[in-house]
Design a protein around this nucleic acid. Structure first.
Lengths: 129, 129
DNA sequence: CTTGACCTTCCAGCAACAGGAACCCCTAAG
DNA sequence: CTTAGGGGTTCCTGTTGCTGGAAGGTCAAG
């Protein structure tokens, strides 16, 4: 299978797939013409990676998850630990963003948004209350 | 005022302040010895930038907000437009993260997390349900 | 034989800095 | 006078996860 077809099947841009090979996440074979020759297992791995990335796992997390996935003797506790840690980071991010959102929403609703220069948003950035 | 003192007053790392000069957000004067000589206005601007960044505005947004802040004849509508746009982006991010969080929380709670290899998290990454 | 759709590698760039090297400046103490 | 320290300066590299583009090889069809 060439990269274009794999790209469609796995739902990842060809650029991304090349990148993943670059950093050692996958190791597709090569045809005599130099083209990458992907196996079904490669496609499967790429789809796995795509889903892990969609859940926000970092590349390094993905590398570890992939290794655990391929290790039949893994302990599910190892997987869970990675996911739990990641979950905590996401919750932190959400909390931060919610704080920003609340402040911003207040400011936006306090601002007339007309032609006059008076602006609560700038006032707050100048010296928050 | 030297950069160290400004760093404390504005609550920004010296590195960041140099960077902000680099990209043209501030233009501090220079002493004869080559040191940056910050004015009170510079400090004020940096604090403004720090707060805008803390609300998640991009550097380009900050550049625009700063210009509006300094423009006595601005229209508050322009400020509000920037803030509103940014608010929408934040809400999008929050929604995405919440989606990830929900999925992850489910998976984490479904996973025994012990020594056995069976793992709902990996199962889902392999083929989501 | 040429066109066009593939594929290849390599290089640059994004955001917003952080780390570190190599060096200059200034003051105070021994 | 020298030295130690704690400032400051520039410049280069690295971070994360790709994306865009240039320059060129390959392949099947018309």
């Amino acid at each position: 299978m060439n990269i274009g077809e794999v790209s469609k099947k796995a739902g990842l841009p060809a650029k991304t797939i090349r990148y993943y090979e670059d950093i050692g996440l996958i190791k597709p074979a090569r045809d005599t013409n130099g083209y990458r020759a992907f196996s079904g297992a490669d496609v499967h791995k790429l789809a796995f990676l795509g889903r892990a990335r969609a859940l926000g796992f970092t590349i390094e997390d993905c590398r570890n998850l992939l290794a655990l996935w391929e290790d039949q003797g893994r302990a599910s506790g190892d997987v869970r630990a990675i996911a739990k840690e990641h979950l905590a980071e996401i919750e932190t991010k959400i909390a931060n963003l919610q704080g920003m959102r609340d402040t911003l929403a207040n400011l936006v609703s306090a601002c007339a948004g007309d032609d006059r220069p008076d602006c609560p948003i700038l006032n707050d950035l100048q010296s928050p209350r």
